[in-house]
Design a binder for these strands. Sequence first.
DNA 1: CGTGGGTTTGATGGAGCTCAAGGCACGTGG
DNA 2: CCACGTGCCTTGAGCTCCATCAAACCCACG
Lengths: 227, 227
Amino acid sequence: MSLACETCPVRDSAACAVLSEDERAELAKAGRTRRLKRGELLFAAGDEDTACATLISGALKVTSFAEDGSERILALIHPSGFVGEMFAPFASYDVVALTDSQLCVFAKADMNRALERHPALTRALLRRSQEDLHRAHMLLALGSGMGASDKVGKLLMALAQAASESPCHPRLNFQLPLTRGEMASMLGLTIETVSRALTALERDGLIKREGARGIEIIEPARLELLD
Amino acid sequence: MSLACETCPVRDSAACAVLSEDERAELAKAGRTRRLKRGELLFAAGDEDTACATLISGALKVTSFAEDGSERILALIHPSGFVGEMFAPFASYDVVALTDSQLCVFAKADMNRALERHPALTRALLRRSQEDLHRAHMLLALGSGMGASDKVGKLLMALAQAASESPCHPRLNFQLPLTRGEMASMLGLTIETVSRALTALERDGLIKREGARGIEIIEPARLELLD
DNA sequence: CGTGGGTTTGATGGAGCTCAAGGCACGTGG
DNA sequence: CCACGTGCCTTGAGCTCCATCAAACCCACG
């Protein structure tokens, strides 16, 4: 399926928003939209002919695997986010859809051509890359210095942020895009510990659960925001 | 002190290497070299008028502080590395010299002007930024799924890589740029645990220590490389 | 010689990992 | 419609590893 930038919900927030209409139309010729169902693989670690993509809707996870086969989640990608290692000869990570997703895919060569042609696009990606770096640092900062339920609480706040349309205030009521195992793999904990942490947070009245995935945040302040 | 690019040891590996002689000369007019002694602060979290810099020699650490005041190391910067949040209104991290260092500092405004003028420079920074991201991911992957001495072992391998001139093979014999506390803060451990892990690694014959800072790696294979 | 920063070592307790069992929701086939 | 299987989540019990507290050491430096 070819692109339909006119109706794209992230046309003003994605990297390509810095382009003029004409430039965008030209870039669009090189890209294709793609739909993924939950669990589908977008890029696989080791792929040589890698591509890159802007996420239109849904959510992705970027994962690597330890030698023992256990998965580690390195990053989440939300709509208008960009994913792809533009300069590596092959992909280092798996990228998998967390929910049904829709994205806009470009071959690496095409994107590189576009970067050469449109400096503003390069700068937009640089900005995004630095934001990604900042998020990775936030995740790193979660690694130490506190108990499991603090970590889970902060992760919930981060997810609440991401689920919100408004960039400043979290959404107090949302569905988790992650399984317990995925949360565990972001935080360096086990499934059981995450589960226990959630019940503890609920017991203490900081959150309320609706089924396995629904979360309502009761006391945002005490969950201490993640930046 | 003004710049002396002609004799700069990282003139071929730093971001500015993509510039022509003339372009570099022009950029040089905007920059100044600066020397830091071990422990000196380069940028402080919260600074509004931030700058950015290329490291010429020495080593830097990028740190953030938890609410309880404990430091967390988010990244290390080695010669030819670039540091600075080009797009943030103020700095989020402290940047501190780990050893006596020499760098090449630019005001953010000047650097932004240079980015507009020289697309190739922007692309060089984008590449660097993605590498930084990759390193952050490696550090994240250290967070889970193994014991303390595995973490310390892998950190040693990463430091051995960084200490080496050759990009592919680690240096088996080097001085740690980090104190025990700094290693601990990279790994989410305590000083004591790091110390014990080192003595365990030495007892098992994987490494040998020369004083508090000297490290010789005996069995690189068993320390399992960090990427 | 004393002081202080960094390091090592020991003893102890607790947070979280492991192993194991059970529950709930959902889909599939009889 | 029910029986069954499969994923995912929860809960429990025991044990391991690491954080914590405490003390001593080493060494550079004034």
